[in-house]
Design a protein around this nucleic acid. Structure first.
Length: 577
DNA sequence: AGGCGGTCTAAAT
DNA sequence: TAGACCGCCT
């Protein structure tokens, strides 16, 4: 995960601090790490999908830390992961198996009455799910905590916010565990923040400016630093054997240029360097520089750093590795947590009882603007629409029309979706399948088959991916082989179709298991009460007494993600431990 | 010296 | 599960 050995290497520049330092400032939070840690406090409940409050302890954990920041007058800006980067989608099965194995072992222990051993195993079986993310979003909304769902990597979004002036919604620092933030060029990063607010901080400018510090970065700029990170091995690209962070640093110091380092590598360790290393390397560096992020001012996707001329010269389709483009409306809906970034399904758990939903507090820039997507009416209608994609839509459009076609399709889908009385099951389909990668609200943190990944991505362009109506949050449970327990625990028996029967089946009536599952509606108020009880009320964050419904257990009818490579199944993305 | 593989252990309450 | 740590090997 992250850049191999980077933090150790940068140790001299990492200093202990207390977040108090950022009083009065906005600070970004990489939500994944707190969700993940929080999940340990209730791993069994999460695995068993127990009813009741204990399952929500990860929310407590999270909100406790949010409150801690607020206590120190810090404005937390929570950033959640959106879709997965195309090149990062690896290593599903192994994790599947391990997690399942742990789960099964835990169940055995549990039946034996050995709760201790069971919990230990459950802890190895938990993963952060989009359900958890969504639950968190509900609470953040109700607590008026600013948040944003990144279109892709939260890291990139955080780095972008870090680059903005504070007046434009920028943040002064980022709290995370992930060294990738440095590769993305994040100005100030706080690692290992504990429950009291103590952490370890690295300020990137100090690194470049330091004169007599041990690893010297005197002649480095951000690009060279990023290149060093990629050389050392990152999630997008493993390092050349024999090259670690120290040599990466040495090479960059010596040659002062990516090109020279690459050609040196090739001559020096010829056969150890994959043929496509140079191109993969360049792409990986580009991702760290130009990843697609959401611009809250423009309300659309843009690049972390403006594209260089080289990249601008590339055909549109060639930029997919930076994260496929999304129409502004879709991007906004994702960012505001109204649709699932993976499946593009509406996050409609709001049955909206009596009251109008509260708007989430956006960045102050956005406060006066309405979140149009939240304006949904309650309706008893059981009608569901499913947006379909016909085979011809899977063809690749000429570049000129591609974007437009995609946008208009996305937008009209979104419109339908949002105008439907009951948006519960609506799915936005990409007009071009390749434009919607396998997604997960949380990225896979470790990638073992990246080389393959790059190769396969090309194939994936042709892949057909579609999703039938299903709850995004429960997508994982549509796997016959994994997370079956989730279904079981909810008393839902779904005869899950095999995933490999790809083919474009759009017959929803046929392919969709009817809603025989229980649609347990959990009043968000329950969550709320819980949170209110366990967290301290903090300045400005007024608790909502409104109770809107959160449908947590609407079972997945079926989720299909048909790609050329089955390992790209969406299911893979729920296995990050 | 540095890469790399193996082992230990904390994570949350 | 992943980061930290250790010791061997290049």
């Amino acid at each position: 995960m992250g850049i191999k050995d980077l933090l150790r290497f940068m140790k001299p520049y990492i200093l202990p601090i207390h977040i108090q330092k950022y009083a009065g400032k906005r600070v970004g939070i990489d939500a994944y790490s707190w969700l993940h840690k929080g999940a340990y406090s209730c791993s069994m409940e999460l695995c068993l999908d127990t009813d009741g409050k204990k399952k929500l302890r990860y929310i407590d954990y999270f909100m406790h830390r949010v409150n801690l920041l607020q206590h120190y007058e810090i404005i937390p800006v929570v950033v959640l992961d959106g879709g997965n980067m195309p090149c990062k989608a690896a290593t599903g099965d192994e994790r599947h198996r391990k997690r399942k194995a742990n789960f099964d072992a835990a169940m055995v222990k549990l039946k034996e009455g050995n709760v201790g051993a069971a919990t230990e195993l459950f802890q190895r079986a938990v993963s952060v799910t989009s359900s958890m993310a969504h639950q968190l979003i509900q609470v953040l909304k109700s607590e008026n905590v600013e948040f944003i769902v990144a279109p892709y990597e939260a890291d990139a979004q955080l780095a972008y916010l870090s680059s903005l002036e504070l007046e434009h919604g920028g943040i002064a620092a980022v709290i995370t565990e992930d060294s990738d933030l440095l590769a993305y060029g994040c100005k100030a990063v706080i690692f290992k923040m504990d429950r009291y607010g103590k952490g370890e901080e690295l300020i990137l400018d100090n690194v470049f400016q330091a004169v007599d510090q041990k690893p010297s970065f005197q002649n480095f700029d951000q690009e060279l630093f990023t290149a060093m990170c990629v050389l050392a091995g990152c999630d997008f690209l493993p390092s050349v054997p024999g090259v670690g962070i120290s040599r990466a640093h040495a090479f960059i110091s010596k040659y002062q240029s990516v090109e020279r380092v690459l050609s040196f590598l090739k001559t020096k360790k010829g056969k150890l360097v994959p043929d496509d290393y140079s191109s993969s390397f360049t792409e990986a560096v580009s991702v760290f520089q130009h990843a697609r992020i959401y611009d809250f001012d423009a309300k659309k996707l843009k690049h972390l750093k403006p594209l260089s001329q080289n990249l601008l010269n590339l055909p549109v389709g060639q930029l997919e590795f930076l994260g496929p483009d999304l129409s502004p409306s879709v991007a906004a809906a994702v960012a505001e947590g109204n649709i699932d970034p993976i499946t593009m399904e509406a996050f409609n758990r709001f049955s909206v009882p009596r009251r109008q939903l509260q708007k989430p507090v956006r960045s102050f820039k956005e406060q006066e603007k309405e979140s149009s997507f939240l304006v949904c009416s309650s309706s008893k209608s059981e009608e569901r629409i499913e947006l379909k994609r016909t085979a011809d839509e899977a063809t690749i459009y000429p570049e000129a029309t591609l974007k437009k076609a995609m946008y208009s399709k996305q937008d009209s889908d979104l419109h339908k979706l949002l105008s439907q009385p009951n948006r519960d099951q609506v799915v936005i389909q990409p007009s071009n399948p390749s434009l919607i990668p396998d997604n997960n609200p949380f990225k896979i943190r470790k990638t073992d088959e990246i080389n393959l990944e790059f190769a396969e991505y090309g194939l994936q362009e042709l892949a057909v991916s579609f999703v039938t109506k299903s709850k995004a949050m429960d997508v994982a449970s549509s796997s016959p082989n994994s997370h079956g327990h989730e279904d079981r625990e909810e008393g839902v028996t779904i005869d899950l179709p095999k995933l490999e029967d790809s083919g474009i089946k759009q017959d929803s009536a046929k392919n969709t298991v009817k809603e025989t599952f229980e649609t347990t509606e959990v009043d968000i108020a329950e969550v709320q009460d819980h949170v209110n009880m366990t967290t301290k009320r903090v300045r400005g964050a007024k608790p909502r007494t409104e109770s809107f419904k959160v449908k947590t257990n609407c079972k997945s009818a079926e989720n299909k993600k048909t790609t050329i490579k089955k390992k790209h199944s969406i299911l893979d993305f729920f296995h990050r431990l």
